[in-house]
Amino acid sequence: MTKYGRQLGIGPTDNTSNERTPRNKLNLIPEAARKSFVPYAPGIHGINLAEADMTRIAPGRPRASGEAIKVSGKLMDEYGRPIKNALIEIWNANQHGGYTHDEDHSGLPIDQNFLGIGRTLSNSDGNYEFWTIKPGAYLARPDIGRWRPPHIHVSIIGGSSRLISQMYFPNDPHNDKDPMRILMGDNFKANIGKKYNVTANDFDCGYNFDIIIGGKNPTFFENDIT
């Protein structure tokens, strides 16, 4: 059995990547300690269904400006088994590329109708869906002219390992130069949403984004929440 796991890669031009990426290989976890590495985050109950519709601040309020999209997919483990009742937290920039975060000093316009934060749970088949405004690209590093392609941040609690990831959009001109995309190599395609038509009323289109949670740890959230 090898002692070492992955060597994390340094993002070519990403802010802080050089400063914060461990230089040593990750250590493998012995079997006797593995289970203790899976956090169980209680207190996720009481999610309001409206939190999955990020296109409005609250039900009945005006729709935020930009392209309204649906994002849906399935949460699975490495064996294709659905991960049910997992908490999915979402945040993305508005159509201009601006965040409502108080440390976003880009000066890009803020849309008063777009909070940019949502939550939802996967259902008993592992499926999830939410609605948002397609984010704009933004200039992440004005000093070196580096753009971030449009992306939606997702955080998942409840799989066999903790996951924070991003969904990108197909054929965006900024995709290929993105440092994170370069680190992902060919597997970047797994992080691109697949566009589909939405026949229902007032959404422009949908994107399919299946999420595979890696790791061999037990998945506590497979238990039903009662």
């Binding site: 490495e78 440390e103 941040h153 890696g214």
Partner: peptide
Amino acid sequence: MTHSNKEINRLTPTNEDTVGPYYPPS
């Protein structure tokens, strides 16, 4: 990051990505 998938029948995990500077404290 990605890792090689030694067991053929296993799905490749979705790439982890950075949390970015704007993770909402809320």
